[in-house]
Computed example of a mutant assay.
Amino acid sequence: MENPIQRISEILRDQDDFLVASHFNPDGDAIGSTCAMGHILASLDKQFTLYNPSGIPDRYNYVNTVAPIATVLPNPLPAWTIVMDCGADDRMGEALLGRADETSIINIDHHLGNKNYGAVNWVDPTQPAVGSMLATLATELGIALNGDLAECIYLAVSTDTGFFTYGNTTPESLEMAATMLRNGLDIARMNMLITKQWSENRMDLWTEALSGKELFLDRQVAVTVVTKEMFARTGTTSEDTENIINFLRRLKSVRVAVIFREEGPDLYKFSLRSYGNDNVQEIASRFGGGGHRNASGGTIAAPIDEAKSMLISTIADVLELR
């Protein structure tokens, strides 16, 4: 079987003009990986366009993106499109998915359940982040892990590993971070830029969300709900909900933390977090969602009380909680 790292390296060396994309509503791994790939292509003196249908969130405005992140697709599309951190092809957004037959997709991802939708697929669920995969790719291409490239990779990997505290942290990811540190990465500055992005409005939203938590199944499941009314009242957006769930799962008794976010009438996006062997990806998959063993999500179309009941029942079934 062909080594996908070598195949992708060959394409990047031999071809020119690429579209670089990640999932809509991007997180740190999506933005960091998009920008890291941009720096890799710039090092190879290639033409490229960075794209995300949601643009770049304000909390990442310190990132050197090497090129603007477009919110509208180029026309025509380049021959090759590099799609990253999209566990399913619809995560790239309707616009790109609708034109996927106009380009050849290189699928670089670390999610369980990825269906290998690309012409070239590098899918490795053992990787903590796509950013760590790009560090391997850069090394394969002879590109040093320093400067802006290192900062983008650090953003990607640190946010997906909880600053190297989650169970997905690997020896290789720590060694990669050590290499970048030796190469001049200012880790204190990066940690400050990544974490010091709160507004008072966000704190107000978190206060409401955390104080409204509910505990189920002998206090082993913590649930909170964020509604559109809460966003309006606090002057916040969905971006401000990031990481609320990780505070919920800090409760001693909790094995699974859940956050519901209202998307529309009787439509809720849910996220799940767990530790160790508690596989929430299997839970999410029963609702058409997915992700990782300890971090997954999906969508439920139902009134909130019904949605909570359905999800809690499934958690109890999968994890045998009573």
Rank of each mutant, 00 (worst) to 15 (best):
209 A>K: 04
194 I>V: 01
183 N>D: 14
217 L>I: 04
200 E>A: 10
207 T>A: 11
198 W>H: 09
198 W>Q: 12
181 L>H: 14
191 N>Q: 09
210 L>W: 04
182 R>L: 11
194 I>C: 02
183 N>S: 09
202 R>G: 01
199 S>L: 08
211 S>T: 07
192 M>I: 06
176 M>R: 07
206 W>H: 01
195 T>W: 12
202 R>E: 04
183 N>M: 06
185 L>N: 05
178 A>V: 02
183 N>Q: 14
179 T>D: 08
204 D>L: 15
165 T>E: 14
192 M>S: 13
188 A>R: 14
187 I>T: 13
172 E>C: 05
187 I>M: 05
187 I>C: 11
210 L>K: 01
219 R>T: 10
184 G>V: 07
192 M>K: 14
174 L>Q: 01
216 F>G: 00
213 K>C: 05
218 D>G: 07
185 L>I: 08
183 N>K: 11
217 L>F: 05
194 I>N: 01
193 L>E: 15
179 T>R: 14
203 M>S: 03
194 I>R: 03
185 L>T: 08
177 A>S: 01
196 K>A: 06
186 D>W: 03
170 T>H: 02
165 T>M: 12
189 R>S: 06
214 E>G: 06
189 R>H: 14
219 R>S: 00
203 M>A: 02
207 T>V: 14
202 R>I: 03
204 D>G: 13
218 D>L: 09
182 R>M: 12
200 E>L: 04
186 D>E: 08
178 A>C: 04
200 E>T: 01
191 N>A: 09
195 T>I: 09
165 T>G: 04
167 G>M: 06
165 T>H: 12
179 T>S: 15
174 L>W: 03
181 L>P: 02
212 G>V: 05
180 M>C: 12
186 D>S: 04
217 L>M: 02
165 T>I: 09
217 L>W: 01
195 T>N: 11
196 K>I: 00
189 R>L: 02
180 M>L: 13
213 K>T: 14
215 L>T: 06
172 E>Y: 14
176 M>D: 07
177 A>F: 00
186 D>Y: 04
165 T>N: 03
190 M>D: 05
191 N>C: 05
213 K>V: 07
187 I>E: 09
173 S>H: 13
201 N>Q: 12
213 K>L: 03
219 R>N: 10
214 E>I: 08
195 T>P: 09
181 L>Y: 04
206 W>A: 05
166 Y>S: 00
213 K>A: 05
206 W>V: 02
214 E>N: 08
172 E>R: 09
171 P>R: 11
174 L>N: 01
205 L>A: 10
213 K>Q: 09
216 F>W: 01
182 R>S: 15
